[in-house]
Amino acid sequence: MTTATETTTAAGPLDGIRLSFGGVLNSEWIKLHSLRSTMWCLGLVILLSVGFSALVAGVLHLQNPGAIPATNAASLLVQSSTIGVNFTQLVAAVLGVLVISGEYSTGMIRSTFTAVPGRLGAYFGKLIVLAVVVFVVSIVSLGISSLVATGILNARGVNVDLTRSDVLLPLLGGAGYLALVAILAFAFGAIIRSSAGGIAAILGTLLVLPVALQVVAGLTNATWVSNVASFLPSASGGQLYAFVQPNAPAPASGVVALDATTGGLVLAAWVIVGVVIGAVLIKRRDV
């Protein structure tokens, strides 16, 4: 048994290594794509998006398709291309929660925060990788969906044009919406730290809350309730991928109507609040 003499370890091959944000992004990318559940979710996004587009474009009721004016044809194209977002948002939400809650339920978060002890680097690294991946996969799936819908509608005699800006912008907005929903879900997962709890909370916010408010608005006939409902994430964010009618009638007085810009900003506000709360809790709590 020797007592400690101040020996220094010989220089090793790893002496130059550094923790860096680039490294964290790379790590989170490896983590994301090395899980089967991610691949299932992303595959499902493409499948649901394209499947529903083909279905809707195929069965839409068309009267005298050749005579449909260009604006209405564009509206039909946007509707059938983005119809799948109603479903793929749920998949994006589940993926967003799982990306972080899965680490808590398995204990992986301890390894993650040991490697990245500042924690926020790992939190934002995860968030960025998730958002970019969901956005890219959504762009691809909405791109395929719109091509499929264009093909089917054209075959049915409707004269549609995919390159119009009022068609392309909602498609882009749909991908942005899905990425924002994934981030909001991620924040829920970080706050709640349980897969079941996080998924229930985000699906409740996206699905149950709008219906509940609708019921209340219907029963009370109160304008303010429906106004509140239009500020929910799904309603406000829905404006991002809605077709904009060129001469839509002005809303009745007292009724709030969000457009793509204001709706997008409202959803962004939800996301920012969620992400900030998540960041504060992640930094403060014991793991």
């Binding site: 790893l14 290594i17 550094r18 923790l19 860096s20 490294g23 964290v24 790379n26 790590s27 989170e28 490896i30 983590k31 090395s34 390894s111 490697a115 990245v116």
Partner: peptide, 9 residues
């Protein structure tokens, strides 16, 4: 590999 990536190992 994911843990190693954080530090460029």
């Amino acid at each position: 590999r994911a843990l190693a990536a954080t530090h460029g190992i």
